[in-house]
Nucleic acid binder design. Structure first.
Lengths: 165, 165
DNA sequence: GCGAAATACATCCATTTGGATGTAACGATC
DNA sequence: GATCGTTACATCCAAATGGATGTATTTCGC
């Protein structure tokens, strides 16, 4: 073997792009697990569970609110909502303040399904973050919040089409 | 408006699943940006750039090594390698130790393209992590490394098909 | 209060995705 | 050294994806 696994990872996580690389690694690793789990066990994409989570947690919210919490293409959210409705996990009600908007509410069945999934995801969170002490977890959370509040996430001058062709 | 944007985010990032939720938010936000950038500017998926990065950084590595660094389905890596070869950015050479394996080497053009992209991604990293002090960044890095070394990422008892329905 | 721009969501369709399978080579066991 | 399991990679194909567009409604400017 030309390269040792550990060398590849160690060197990459020490490179100039180390901050992005560690995050990438964590997320890709976890995605492999969670995508397969949701597809196999519930026959739905991960983003359907995200949407259900949002609806149960914020009953009456709109599809665009889901998109805010889970930044994904608009049609992806729209499809997830359709799937949840077809499964009977949410109900859809035209808002009386704005007839374009559709308020989303969980059904009893939807709440039960979410509770079951959420329990597992909570355990999954524990599997991952069990590597940190509680103090470290809180620190991690604070740093992530700071990244989010920093405002550099949503737009980018560096990754704009200008200047490259 | 029934829910305020800030309320939705604040409450979610204070919920039981806050650790996963902040990471999810960061990654989904960034994906929107970077997916579009690579698709529009280079007509290739993000994972093709990942693969090129790996080949330039570790010349002679195998497709399975790319998969180790960027955990993705095997056929996805295979396709990314094909694309890079078609573009003339890498060359493929059958390993003499194992004729199944194919060693990947960057071409000069491949190195140039990577350099250009890497510069932009480095700026992107700065946009995101500029919200943190250098000390905080290092702290963040240490915590992420700990999550990776913790070993909870690659496998999951919580998200296994057993024990549902 | 009228027209133009913006917003909320659905749908279309070309492209991408990834699980499953195929092919060839390697390695271990007896 | 034949057999069986494993590994490295490619390919198939049904399903998911997301940019673009459509439709209806609201909001803004004047």
């Amino acid at each position: 073997m030309r390269y040792e696994t550990d060398d590849i990872l160690r060197e990459t996580f020490a490179s100039d792009l180390r901050y992005l690389m560690v995050v990438s690694y964590i997320v890709l690793s976890n995605n492999q697990i969670s995508n397969r789990f949701f597809e196999k066990t519930y026959r739905m994409p991960v983003h359907a569970w995200s949407a259900l989570y949002a609806v149960v947690r914020f009953p009456g919210l709109l599809a665009k609110d889901i998109q805010l919490l889970f930044p994904r293409p608009q049609n992806s959210v729209s499809r997830a909502v359709s799937l949840l409705r077809e499964r009977g996990w949410i109900t859809v009600e035209t808002s009386d303040e704005d007839t374009r908007a559709k308020q989303l509410f969980p059904t009893e069945q939807g709440r039960r399904v979410l509770e079951e999934i959420e329990g597992r995801v909570l355990k999954r969170q524990e599997e991952i973050f069990g590597a940190l002490t509680h103090q470290e977890r809180d620190l991690f959370l604070q740093l992530c919040r700071k990244l989010i509040l920093g405002g550099g996430l949503a737009d980018s001058a560096a990754l704009s089409a200008d200047g490259v062709q």
